[in-house]
Design a binder for these strands. Structure first.
Lengths: 167, 167
DNA sequence: CATGCATATTTCGATAGCGCACTGTTCGAC
DNA sequence: GTCGAACAGTGCGCTATCGAAATATGCATG
């Protein structure tokens, strides 16, 4: 009951982060296992690519649980999965438990801070900090946050262009 | 090579978050497996308690790797572990890779936001774009990039502070 | 049309971490 | 004095994920 990055559901089930993501992604649009892999790779800038030995067995498991259904579209023997109604319900339930996930993320963050300390400040870390600022902004401020970011992007692009040295 | 919450070392090894934490904690003070369990439980306010079937085998593994040594102090058959010199080195190396861990944590947060955080997607995209820009900057430009980022952070912080945001 | 690359999936052995049950000790309370 | 709670560790089976190899198809390029 006390494991990290596992989200428990109403019924006895547990869902991992990938698991949750799969539901979320299939909710937006039905797709294949391969699509999911690519999507996650892109989302994480290639930092995390789930193994095929993870995603495909998981899809089959979700199918058995009646969470998703294959919509066999012939070409290239690929299997497009979609959420069932049960799946939609399960996803909604999970999303209502937002705080649970938030708590888990926070825990990881705390441990990380405990180990590495608060110190700074590589370029990359500055980006993450910026991210920290905006993620908690209220809705009405988002537009202005957006503008500030655009300005920052422009400045950086400009910097990048002056004297095109490839290194 | 592309798994989350695994930190690769100079040698071929991989370390998990717990693994890293154990090194960090034993560095500060030698202690038993049980102590480590309690410590983590406290640190995470009881949200995460690693299983004994996790911690003890791990300690033995670390011992085999010459990272830690048991300092048998008789009473109650308990085994107090301490970092070896190799362990200290390994820890230092890991800490130098701060950014790697930071990146991993960020990935998790990002996925979390993708799933739970409606409406913030576009903001996230901007952050990623900024990330892309600075990543490719040559060394001599980094300092100026840093300044631009600091400016951006300050602006955002200011935005955040004007009028108490509740969300 | 051969060659190779991106797509798409299967299969399988290895390992990490979980959860539970079990053993034994020390200490305080009743 | 014995009972229960906290301390300290062992052992084992289960599952999730990894990682790598194998297979097969469609698409582009020459």
């Amino acid at each position: 009951m006390k494991s990290i990055l596992k989200y428990s559901t109403q019924d006895g089930h547990k869902r991992s982060l990938i698991n949750l993501y799969v539901l979320h992604s299939l909710h937006r649009e039905p797709k294949t296992g391969y699509d999911l892999l690519k999507e996650i790779e892109e989302l994480t800038k290639g930092v995390w690519v789930p193994s095929k030995g993870t995603i495909y067995p998981m899809l089959r498991q979700l199918e058995e649980q009646g969470i998703i259904v294959p919509q066999e579209t012939g070409a290239r023997a690929k299997t497009i999965y979609a959420l069932t109604e049960n799946g939609e319900t399960a996803l909604t339930e999970m999303k209502e438990r937002r705080h649970q996930s938030h708590e888990n993320v926070q825990i990881i963050r705390n441990i990380h801070t405990e180990i590495f300390g608060e110190g700074r400040a590589s370029l990359a870390e500055n980006v993450w900090e910026i991210w920290d600022y905006i993620r908690d902004h209220s809705h009405d401020k988002q537009k202005r946050a957006q503008e500030i970011l655009m300005q920052c992007k422009d400045d950086l692009r400009e910097l990048g262009e002056e004297g095109e040295t490839v290194e």
